[in-house]
Computed example of a mutant assay.
Amino acid sequence: MPELPASVRVAAWVTHAWAGGVTLTEAVERALPDVDHTEGLVEQLRLWRDLGEAAVLVALPSPGDLAGLPRCGPIATDAAADAGEALYVAGLGGLLVPSVSTFGSAGAEGLRIDWMAHDADPVPPHRIEALEPSQLERHLRRRLLLAIDELDAVGGTPWADEIARDLVDERLGTDWALPTALPERARKVIALAGTVSLAAEVGLQASGALTAAGDESRAVALRSLRRESERTLADATNAACAAMAGWVPSR
């Protein structure tokens, strides 16, 4: 089953734990039920909490688009962009970047995530506190409508095959196994952004354009929509974490 990025799940569950919802161990287990082994995560989370952090935040950068990533050195920047995700804390500054691998023999492989800590600058709190889920939702819905118009103009159907449609339909309206303590509006935006990102990814894998030129135009539109949904997903998650940490009222 498709899931939200690991960093999104960890940010939501660990911030919930830090607010007294569950234990840290339970939070990591809930966030990463599909992962058999983690290294470097719990230790850094405990350190951040002991040093007074109240929320874990998330960035979903990509090569050439570092939106949401705190200022950090080139090694950390490249690692986060290549991974497509990272955790960070705003007060002290600091970054955790995941690296996914498998272990074990063929037919009995396990999934492992190693989390590498990097230095990063603190993030001004007002940048997180200003995130408004309702505005994020309106922006993403406008971007989705624009992408639909672009795809209609190109011709062809991005989700032409039955498997692709079923995969997208499976996730519509679900809550992506997030903590119940998430503010309802932020939860709605996270679910929407996760579904749009998945739909764009599936569309990129299932060619439905009528010509080679159309296929490239369709891919450009879908990649742009996917990036927009990833930015919204990170921002909505951070808005939810800010609310659970008590920085802003739930909204």
Rank of each mutant, 00 (worst) to 15 (best):
P2V: 05
E3Y: 09
P5I: 03
V10R: 00
A12L: 14
T15V: 01
A17L: 03
A19P: 00
A19I: 03
L24P: 06
E26K: 13
E29I: 09
E29P: 06
A31L: 02
A31T: 06
L32D: 00
L32K: 04
G40V: 02
V42M: 10
E43C: 06
E43L: 10
L45G: 01
R49W: 04
L51T: 10
A54N: 07
A55G: 08
V58R: 01
V58Q: 02
G68L: 05
L69Y: 07
A79K: 04
A81Q: 06
A83W: 05
A86N: 07
V89M: 08
A90R: 13
A90W: 04
G91N: 07
G91E: 15
G91K: 12
L92Q: 08
G94K: 01
P98F: 02
T102D: 11
A108E: 11
A108V: 05
R112M: 09
R112E: 12
D114F: 00
D119M: 08
D119H: 14
P122G: 09
H126V: 07
R127F: 10
R127C: 11
I128V: 15
I128L: 15
E132T: 08
S134H: 07
S134D: 13
H139T: 15
L140V: 03
R142E: 15
E150G: 05
T157Y: 03
A160C: 12
D161Q: 14
D166T: 13
L167M: 06
L172R: 12
A177Q: 13
A177P: 07
P179Y: 04
L182F: 06
L182W: 06
P183K: 01
E184I: 10
R185T: 13
L198T: 07
A199P: 01
Q205G: 15
S207W: 13
G208I: 02
T211Q: 04
A213Q: 14
V220R: 11
V220H: 12
A221I: 01
L222K: 10
S224P: 08
S229E: 01
T232S: 14
L233W: 06
L233K: 02
A236W: 00
A240K: 00
A242E: 03
M244H: 00
M244K: 00
G246Y: 03
